[in-house]
């Protein structure tokens, strides 16, 4: 138990530090690399909770594919250095008020929620494994799963329509 606690708190510390680093660093590349580190720590959290599959998905999809995309976009655009940020004057106080509201909301959910917190159930064998996820995805959630594929197709068509060179004179 204690080793797990030590592991949890040291990971939590890393997650918070990398999260702050992401926000504070002026160079967009460093920020992206902090985010990669953050995703990795979250993946280990999932592992601690027994979700091996979701941990792997986190690493391969978020820390892998999406972050590579981020880095490429930053480098291609040459947007490593943030220009002088011109913030709106009232932005900061509003942001502070909104974050306080969010914190209160989160605190409420944690401490004063009316419905009793249910004790953690012993999970069935193979819960969160590839087999059970696939089972749920292709049985209970078949329709959302298929619609998502249509959605991706539409997004792809849209991107091509918007970026492809004009060929309006098709009828000629």
């Amino acid at each position: 138990m204690t080793t797990e606690l030590i592991l949890f708190f040291s990971l939590a510390l890393i997650a918070i530090i990398t999260g702050l680093g992401l926000l504070i660093s002026k160079n967009a590349i460093y920020a992206a690399l902090y985010l990669v580190l953050n995703f990795f720590t979250i993946a280990i959290f999932y592992l601690l909770l027994g979700g091996a599959f979701i941990a792997m998905a986190q690493v391969s999809v978020y820390a892998g594919a999406i972050m590579v995309l981020f880095l490429f976009v930053i480098m291609i655009l040459g947007a490593e250095k943030l220009g002088k940020s011109n913030t709106v004057a009232w932005q900061r106080p509003v942001a502070i008020i909104l974050s306080i509201i969010l914190l209160i909301e989160a605190g409420y959910v944690l401490f004063w929620r009316t419905a009793p917190v249910q004790a953690a159930q012993t999970l069935p064998d193979g819960f969160g494994g590839p087999a059970s996820i696939g089972n749920v995805l292709l049985n209970n959630y078949l329709l959302p799963f298929e619609i998502t594929s249509v959605l991706l197709l539409v997004a792809m068509i849209g991107a091509i329509v918007l970026t492809h060179k004009q060929k309006t004179d098709k009828e000629v």
């Binding site: 959302p144 959605l151 997004a155 849209g158």
Partner: peptide, 20 residues
């Protein structure tokens, strides 16, 4: 979940059509 997917499925083509 289906509401959200439907919202995106109807919106994304409209974004593109608006910029058509």
């Amino acid at each position: 979940i289906v509401f959200f997917l439907a919202l995106e499925l109807l919106s994304i083509p409209l974004y593109v059509l608006a910029a058509f």
